[in-house]
Design a protein around this nucleic acid. Structure first.
Lengths: 218, 218
DNA sequence: CTATATTTTGAGTAATGACTCACTCACTGA
DNA sequence: TCAGTGAGTGAGTCATTACTCAAAATATAG
C-alpha cells in the first residue's frame, strides 16, 4: 500500500510525453476491441511509433494495461472527482440542497462521459485483473466516503435530510447515477430514456422523496 | 428479430446433454479467465471431452460464447426472472407493499448470486460483443418493463405510490439493487456493507421514502 | 564536424492456440 | 458375426502475435 503510493508518485513524475502518447493509444484501442483482442501492433500504429518502441517504455502488454489506469486515476480522477465535488459542496451555504446535488450529478455524468473509453476498459478488465481496482479501493473510495459522509452529516444536523447512514446515501446516489449512465449506453429505448436534464431531475426527485406516497418520518 | 426468436427455440429444443456439459464448462472457464484468455483446451478438459469434440458441437470459439448466453437467457432467465417476480407481485393483495417489494429484492439478489459466473461473463464480454445483449434488449427488458409498469400503475391508482413514471421507478430499483450487488462483490469494506437482510431493508426504506426530511407531495 | 550516447526501428523468433481431419471404436440392425 | 454409422479423438497444421535485438537514425558533446 505504502509501496503502491510511492509507485504512483514515481510514475506520475516520470511519465514522459511518449509514455502518454502510447498510453492514450492503448486506451483507444483497448476500449474498442478489449485488452485480449487488441494487438500491440495496433497500439503502435495508433500511437504513431514502431512496435519496438512500445516495449522500450512498457515491459509487457500487461504492463501497458496496468500502467494505463494508475497514472490516469492519480492524475485525472483524484483531483477531478474529489476536488470538483468538494468545490460544489462548498457552495452549499448560498443555495438550495436540490441545486447543489443536481450540480454534483451533472458534474459526475459529464466526467464519466468524457472518459468513457477509459472507464469501459478498466471496468471490464478489472473483472479479470482485480489489481486494477486497488487504487480505487484504497485511494478514491475512502476519500469519497469521507467527503460525502461529512456533507450528509451536516445536512442531517441542519434538518434537511433524514438521519440515514451517510455511506448508504452515497451508495444510493452513485447507484442511481451509474444505473442511469449504463442504461443510457446500453438500452436507452427499452428503458424509455428522455433527455439528460429531465432524467437527472427525475432521479434527484426520486432520491430525495422516494416513490411512496405517505412519508412516515421515523 | 423474428429470426432470432425462432433460433432461440431451435437451440432450446436441440441442445443435447453434451452441449450443456460443454457450455457449463465454458461458463466456468470464461468466468475465471475471461473469454479472450481462455483456451479451448481448458474448456475441453473442464468438460471432460477432447478438444475436437467441442468443435463438433460449436463451430468456433466465438460460437461457444454466443451460444452460451442465448439458451441460458431463454431457458433460465425468462421463466425465473419474469415468472417468479410476477408470482410475488400477485401476492400483493394479502400483504403490505413493503413486504412484497422486499421479497422481490431478496429473490433478485438470490438469482443473481446463483448465476454470478454467467452474469459476469456476459456483462464483461457484452462490452465487446454487443450482440450478446440483443436477447436482453429485445426479450427481457420489454417484458420486464411491461410487468413492472402494470404493478406500479396499480399502486399509484391505489394511492400507495406517488405518481412517478413506472419505468423510472423500475430503473431506480434495479439501479439500487445492482449497485448493492456490485459493491458487495468489489469493495464491501470501503462501502461499509452490513449483512444482506439489513442492507436490503435499508435500501427499500430509502427507495420508498427518499433521503430528504420534508416530503413535499406535488 | 566527429565521436559518443541515446532512441527508434522492424524483421525475425519462438511460442501459442484455434481449428482440422484421418482415424478409432462403441454401437446397431440384419 | 459383421458391415455400417457416426460420435469422439488428439496429433498436427498454420496463422498469429508478444517480444527481442542488431542495426539505423537521431540527438548530444567535444
Amino acid at each position: 500500500m505504502s509501496d503502491e503510493m510511492r509507485q504512483f508518485d514515481q510514475i506520475e513524475e516520470e511519465l514522459t510525453e511518449k509514455h502518454w502518447k502510447i498510453l492514450e493509444a492503448a486506451v483507444k484501442v483497448f476500449s474498442e476491441k478489449g485488452y485480449g483482442a487488441s494487438r500491440t501492433s495496433e497500439v503502435a500504429k495508433e500511437a504513431g511509433v514502431s512496435e519496438g518502441t512500445i516495449f522500450n517504455y512498457f515491459k509487457t502488454k500487461k504492463d501497458l494495461l496496468t500502467s494505463m489506469v494508475i497514472p490516469l486515476v492519480v492524475r485525472f480522477f483524484r483531483p477531478l472527482i474529489l476536488l470538483s465535488v468538494e468545490k460544489i459542496f462548498r457552495t452549499r451555504k448560498d443555495r438550495e440542497l436540490e441545486d447543489v446535488l443536481l450540480d454534483v450529478m451533472r458534474d459526475r455524468v459529464k466526467l464519466v462521459k468524457s472518459n468513457l473509453p477509459l472507464i469501459k476498459t478498466v471496468a471490464t478488465e478489472a473483472a479479470y485483473h482485480p489489481e486494477l481496482l486497488d487504487p480505487i479501493r484504497e485511494q478514491m473510495a475512502p476519500k469519497l466516503v469521507e467527503i460525502a459522509a461529512k456533507f450528509f452529516q451536516e445536512e442531517v444536523a441542519k434538518g434537511t435530510l433524514r438521519d440515514v447512514d451517510p455511506v448508504l446515501a452515497l451508495r444510493a446516489l452513485m447507484s442511481l447515477l451509474g444505473g442511469y449512465i449504463l442504461m443510457r449506453e446500453v438500452m436507452p429505448e427499452a428503458m424509455r430514456l428522455q433527455d439528460e436534464e429531465t432524467e437527472l431531475r427525475r432521479l434527484l426527485d426520486l432520491y430525495l422523496h422516494g416513490v411512496a406516497k405517505q412519508d412516515r418520518q421515523e
